[in-house]
């Protein structure tokens, strides 16, 4: 705590004393208020800034991935809607399960020549050299992996429920740079599942993916039966 200049405050206080009732000790009131406020502000700083910094570990992805370039019309990735374009790489397997982040084989379908890149970025060259040439998997961190106790069927939501990708994933598919992966040190959850909006205030559907958010949407869209516990828990 810094000490306020006492002399300067002295004159100011005595002039104030003229306006306040005699039973009020202005000096002590102000001092009380000051300390309360200081504690209050410090707590806000700790709670809003320090705590999230400590709670989340930051891990950069091994290389950058430019989603925007890939969903661009010229990229050659087909699809009438945005969702269809996403599904070009993030595909469903034959059994209806969702493949998630593509394996290197999927990348190689287009980036088949490690010698010549399709685009012009350095990142792509690095990718071709280090991964495509050696057919090595990229160890991506997954932003949206739900914990082990959760079962989530993409196909039920995308194919049957006609949900667009952005409903849960926001603008992720349009980003040029993928963000640093932040993981909750206590729970091991990604910040994208729950933690982006610490206020708890939710403006977008993709701000949070907790159980209540799933249930809320099921209820709103008339799929109350899917709120049965076993539908989403395993």
């Amino acid at each position: 705590m810094e000490k306020p200049d006492e002399k300067l405050g002295e004159g100011f206080l005595s002039s104030l004393n003229d306006f306040v009732p005699p039973w009020l000790d202005l000096r002590s009131t102000l001092s009380t208020g000051f300390f309360l406020l200081a504690g209050f502000i410090a707590a806000l700083v700790v709670g809003w800034i320090l705590f999230p910094m400590i709670l989340y570990s930051k891990q950069p992805q091994p290389i950058n991935f430019n989603h925007a370039v890939h969903i661009d019309e010229e990229s050659g990735i087909e699809g009438e809607t945005e969702t269809e374009k996403c599904l070009y790489c993030h595909e469903f397997r034959e059994d209806g399960s969702f493949a998630g982040i593509p394996k290197i084989d999927k990348c190689i379908e287009c980036h088949d020549d490690p010698e010549s890149s399709i685009g012009e970025t350095l990142e792509e060259k690095e990718f071709l050299q280090n991964y495509v040439a050696e057919e090595k998997e990229v160890s991506w961190f997954s932003y949206y992996r739900q914990p082990d106790c959760v079962y989530f069927s993409h196909i039920a939501h995308v194919n049957m429920g006609k949900q667009e990708c952005f409903v849960c994933h926001g603008d992720h598919g349009k980003s040029e740079k993928i963000p640093v992966y932040q993981q909750n040190r206590l729970t091991g959850y990604s910040i994208n599942i729950w933690g982006k909006r610490l206020s708890g205030w939710k403006t977008n559907t993709w701000d949070r993916m907790k159980m209540d958010d799933c249930a809320e949407c099921h209820t709103k869209t008339g799929h109350e039966e899917n709120n049965a516990c076993f539908v989403c828990h395993k």
Binding site: A38, A43, F51, L55, L186, L198
Partner: peptide, 26 residues
């Protein structure tokens, strides 16, 4: 006084709520 202010202030941050929840999830 400082602590009292702090305690009051912390209620208005996500810390206690998120921490409790995270511990439960842990």
């Amino acid at each position: 006084k400082f602590l009292v202010g702090g305690v009051a202030g912390i209620q208005l941050t996500p810390l206690p709520w998120k921490f409790t929840d995270d511990v439960a999830i842990w």
